[in-house]
């Protein structure tokens, strides 16, 4: 009788552990999936930038420095894509530089009227919105996953099976500084 009772308890514990473990695995996979989602939109932006630089160069020769910075930031993004913090820093800087470019383009009416440029601007604007949304989704998933990893009693399971906290897609000033140094090295 006691043995049967013990077996039932053990079985319940195993089931509970399995449920918690699977929950952690699902959360971790959701984080990876969200990261892959950001990656898709970052790559789409990377593909649009060369075309943008070519189009703008033809009309706005005086903005050479700005265009070169965009190109170097693009390369920095490609190089940093395994590192979340560096990618976030490069993304922030590229976003800011593109906004500066679109502000400067206001001084070039011929370029503003160019159909190709307008189409690229629209595409890039949509892509930036999707990147921002994808970042929010990724960070929400990371928050939920990290909460599961750190909360009791899942923290016992996460400790035993080696689940670690994921990084948020946010950059600090020092990471942005490192990116700036790396793109200056490219010039």
């Amino acid at each position: 009788m006691f043995l049967e009772f013990l077996l039932v308890i053990i079985l319940i514990i195993i089931i509970v552990i399995a449920i918690m473990y699977n929950g952690l695995v699902r959360s971790r996979n959701a984080v990876k999936n969200a990261w892959a989602g950001i990656d898709v939109w970052l790559k789409r932006r990377e593909d649009l930038i060369p075309n943008l630089v070519r189009t703008v160069k033809g009309y706005a020769k005086h903005e050479k420095q700005l265009l070169e910075e965009i190109t170097r930031l693009r390369i920095a993004m490609i190089n940093s894509q395994k590192d979340i913090k560096r990618t976030a820093a490069a993304d922030d800087m590229l976003n800011k530089t593109l906004k500066s470019l679109f502000a400067v383009v206001e001084n070039y009416p011929m370029l503003r009227a160019n159909e190709n440029f307008l189409e690229l601007q629209k595409e890039l604007s949509n892509t930036e919105n999707e990147i921002a949304a994808a970042r929010r989704i990724y960070n929400n998933n990371v928050r939920d996953y990290n909460t599961s990893v750190d909360s009791f009693p899942q923290n016992i399971i996460s400790g035993i099976f080696g689940f670690e906290n994921a990084e948020f897609f946010n950059a600090t000033a020092s990471e942005r500084k490192q990116i700036k140094i790396s793109i200056d090295d490219l010039s």
Partner: peptide, 9 residues
């Protein structure tokens, strides 16, 4: 179908 957002799923 599972999309990127866990909350949406």
């Amino acid at each position: 179908v599972d999309l990127e957002s866990m909350e949406f799923n």
